[in-house]
C-alpha cells in the first residue's frame, strides 16, 4: 500500500507546496469541524475540495490563511506545513498576517472594497508598505492582466469597483489577491454567485494561474471540479474520505461513499 502511493507520486512527479497533517479544528462553541484531515497541495496544480454542505471544506480552506483567527475561541490542532521553508503555519508564534501575505484568498461572493478599481488591486501592495506610484502602477497592471481584466478596465481605473459586473468584480478580487504574488491561492466557491459565462472565464483564468502558483478550491459544482482540477478531495462530516487524481476520483473512486456522492445518489 505504502509502496503504491510512493510510485504514484513518482509517476506524477509532483512537488508538495503545502500539506495538512492530521488537522483538527474546533469552533468556539466546541463543535469539531475537522477531524484528522491530512491532505497535500501540489505545486502548480489545482486541488479541488468537494462534499455536501457543512462537510468542512470551507473550514478547511480557511485554515490555510488562518482566517479563523479573526474570531475568538476557534482552535486548530495539527499541522499545515508550508514548503519550501517547512513552516507549520498553524503555530501560534507564526503571525497570521505573515501567512496571509504568502497565501491569498478569493471569496464566494465578489467582495471588492468600495474604492476605485485601482485602489482595490493596489491595496495588498499598500498594506505591504509599497507607496511608489510607478511600482504600484506596474503591479496593478500586471495583476489586472493576470486576471484577464485589464482590457476591460484600463480606461477607467479610477471608477468605483461596484460599477463592474459580478463576473468582473470577481476577477477584480482575483487581481487583488494576485497583485501580491502569493504562493498559494485559495478559492472559496468563487463562481457560485456568477452566471455561466463569467464562470467559464474564471475557470479558464484558474487554469492559467496554476502555471505560477498552487491553487486550492472549494466547489459545490462537481463538473467544475472535474473540468479544472488536477486533484480532488472528497470530504464528509469533517473527514477526508478520499483524495486522488481528479480522473481517478471521477471515473474510478476507491471508496463507496465517494462514488455515491459523485453519481448523485447522496448529497
Amino acid at each position: 500500500m505504502v509502496k503504491k502511493i510512493i510510485t504514484n507520486k513518482l509517476k506524477h512527479d509532483e512537488i508538495i507546496k503545502a500539506e495538512s497533517k492530521n488537522l483538527n479544528f474546533f469552533y468556539a462553541d466546541g463543535t469539531q469541524a475537522l477531524n484528522g484531515v491530512s491532505l497535500p497541495v501540489y505545486e502548480n496544480k489545482i486541488t479541488a475540495l468537494i462534499g455536501p454542505s457543512g462537510c468542512g471544506k470551507s473550514t478547511f480552506l480557511r485554515c490555510f490563511n488562518r482566517m479563523h483567527d479573526l474570531y475568538p475561541g476557534n482552535r486548530y490542532d495539527g499541522q499545515i506545513i508550508l514548503q519550501p521553508d517547512n513552516t507549520n503555519i498553524l503555530l501560534t508564534d507564526v503571525d497570521p498576517i505573515e501567512v496571509r501575505m504568502r497565501i491569498s484568498m478569493v471569496f464566494q461572493k465578489p467582495n471588492p472594497f468600495p474604492k476605485s478599481i485601482y485602489e482595490n488591486v493596489a491595496y495588498g501592495l499598500r498594506v505591504r508598505g509599497e507607496s511608489k506610484k510607478r511600482t504600484l502602477d506596474e503591479k496593478v497592471e500586471e495583476a489586472l492582466k493576470g486576471a484577464s481584466l485589464w482590457n476591460e478596465v484600463k480606461d477607467r481605473l479610477q471608477d468605483l469597483a461596484f460599477n463592474l459586473s459580478g463576473g468582473q468584480q470577481q476577477r477584480l478580487c482575483i487581481a487583488r489577491a494576485l497583485a501580491t504574488e502569493p504562493e498559494i491561492m485559495l478559492f472559496d466557491e468563487p463562481t457560485s454567485a456568477l452566471d455561466p459565462i463569467a464562470t467559464m472565464n474564471i475557470e479558464e483564468l484558474m487554469s492559467e494561474l496554476k502555471q505560477k502558483l498552487s491553487i486550492l478550491i472549494v466547489t459545490h459544482n462537481m463538473q467544475q471540479a472535474a473540468r479544472i482540477s488536477d486533484y480532488t478531495a472528497y470530504m464528509y462530516l469533517g473527514k477526508l474520505i478520499e483524495f486522488d487524481a481528479t480522473n481517478k476520483i471521477f471515473t474510478n473512486p476507491s471508496k463507496k461513499e465517494t462514488e455515491d456522492y459523485i453519481t448523485g445518489k447522496f448529497g
Binding site: 482566517m67 467582495n111 472594497f113 468600495p114 491595496y123 498594506v127
Partner: peptide, 27 residues
C-alpha cells in the same frame, strides 16, 4: 459593514489598525 468586506481586507494581510483606518472608519 458586512463581514465579507472586513475578511477581504484581512485576507490580503492587513493588520487590525490598517483594516480600521483604511476600511472600517471610512465606510
Amino acid at each position: 459593514i458586512p463581514v465579507h468586506i472586513r475578511e477581504a481586507a484581512y485576507a490580503v494581510g492587513a493588520t487590525k489598525w490598517q483594516v480600521c483606518r483604511n476600511h472600517v472608519i471610512p465606510y
